[in-house]
């Protein structure tokens, strides 16, 4: 069975574990280097990216994780996890680092503060029906490098035809090789299609 770790330093670990389990994987929390070695794939959960970055460094997980990503470990990051996967970020705090691997620029807290957080149905590449997507102080992707596939964008206009300002058309889900990232949180909705997508990606990479 495919074993997928969820980085469990901080954030909504339990929701990802549950979503992965219902998508048919065996899910385990990962806080130590030794735990990292036994997983076929890894989820970087939602949480506070600045906190997770610090804990990765203090507990000496950053370098092993970077090495694992370079070595082809499949990783899915949601929200803070997307920030951690990005090669470049804007709106980070002084000294904030990411793990990198994904050739994108991610803008932290791009949609605003919590009062601006929202949920919406979004068309996602590879999923037949729209996905209920929950954005919580969410980032967006400002630009993507070659080889990065865009899986979802904010629409250009609202359903009633009004413009969406700076958010219009912004990229909110991407895939590049074995790395998958969403600005939103499918793990809090009970819809496990994104996790199923990732489980298939991990299972396929195990076989190859």
């Amino acid at each position: 069975m495919t074993t997928i770790g969820v980085l469990a330093l901080q954030g909504d670990v339990r929701e990802h574990v549950a979503a992965l389990e219902s998508a048919g994987a065996h899910a385990v929390p990962v806080r130590r280097r030794s735990e990292l070695e036994s997983v076929d794939g890894l989820v970087l959960p939602g949480g506070e990216s600045t906190t997770i970055d610090k804990l990765l460094r203090v507990f000496e997980l950053r370098e092993p994780l970077r090495a694992a990503i370079a070595d082809g470990l499949p990783v899915y990051g949601s929200c803070a996890g997307m920030i951690l996967l990005a090669d470049r970020i804007t709106g980070g705090i002084d000294g904030q680092q990411t793990l990198g691997g994904l050739d994108v620029t991610v803008r932290r807290n791009a949609f605003g503060r919590q009062v601006d957080s929202f949920e919406a149905d979004l068309a996602v590449e590879g999923l037949e029906a729209p996905l209920r997507s929950v954005f919580i102080r969410a980032p967006w992707v400002d630009d993507v490098g070659p080889g990065v596939e865009v899986l979802a964008r904010i629409p250009e206009r609202a359903t009633d035809g009004t413009g969406l300002g700076e958010a219009a058309g912004k990229i909110v889900a991407v895939r590049s090789g074995r790395l998958l990232a969403t600005a939103f949180h499918p793990e809090v909705t009970g819809d496990t299609r994104v996790h199923a997508l990732f489980v298939r990606l991990v299972t396929a990479s195990r076989r190859s």
């Binding site: 469990a8 909504d12 939602g46 906190t51 803070a80 919590q114 957080s117 919580i136």
Partner: peptide, 15 residues
Amino acid sequence: TARVKRGMAEMLKGG
């Protein structure tokens, strides 16, 4: 929405 409000707290867990 309740999901957006409660979801925010989910992201603070372990912190």
